[in-house]
Design a protein around this nucleic acid. Structure first.
Length: 177
DNA sequence: GCTGAGATTCTT
DNA sequence: AGAATCTCAGCA
């Protein structure tokens, strides 16, 4: 079973502790930025009042694409990166909200900050994160045990009566308590 | 084309 | 607590 082809809540939890890699090809000579994913949120289909799948248009269409599709969403002058989950035709996605830099030093404790640090913009929209030469997810140490904290989602006007934000307990790089 | 809301961030 | 600032959907 493909990792992203599952319920977004499961994917959001399982992404915690994994490594996101951003590789710069061309003149940057293969330089790689690596960071641990420490905070995520799950978004569902049109029944989710906070989901962009509620509205028709490109964002909804992208959420209907195959699992692993990158969805870039612009809000308040920031780019946010999401990864589409579940099978084609089902609108859902996971938002990456915060990462812990491993080999660089730039603030990444917020969805708009991490895209800025990793130089992720709309050009990644609709690419797939599987088999991508510029961005991908790697597994981390299996023995590294992680405690997950749940909370309600941040910044949404209307949330579901369910905790859909997940972050690594005691991690210093989450966007907020 | 214009309008208004928004999964944000920074400053006071 | 409020401003700054851009993208997108909806409507004309």
């Amino acid at each position: 079973m493909e990792f992203f082809n599952q319920n977004p809540e499961i994917v959001a939890r399982d992404l915690l502790g994994k490594i996101i890699v951003r590789k710069f090809n061309g003149k940057f000579n293969g330089n790689e930025l690596r960071a641990k994913i420490v905070e995520t949120e799950a978004y569902f289909d049109e029944k989710d009042p906070a989901s962009r799948a509620r509205k028709n248009g490109d964002l909804r269409n992208t959420m209907l694409m195959q699992a692993g599709t990158i969805l870039i969403y612009g809000v308040h002058n920031s780019w946010l990166i999401n990864i589409v989950t579940e099978e084609k035709g089902k609108a859902s996605a996971v938002l990456i909200r915060a990462i812990e830099p491993l080999n660089f030093n730039e603030r990444c404790n917020g969805p708009g900050l991490l895209t800025k640090a990793l130089k992720i913009d709309k050009s990644f929209h609709k690419q797939n994160i599987l088999n991508n030469k510029e961005i991908w997810i790697e597994n981390f140490d299996k023995n590294n045990k992680i405690e997950i904290v749940e909370s309600f989602r941040i910044g949404v006007k209307k949330d579901l009566p369910k905790k859909l934000r997940f972050y690594i307990k005691n991690n210093k790089f989450i966007s907020r308590k």
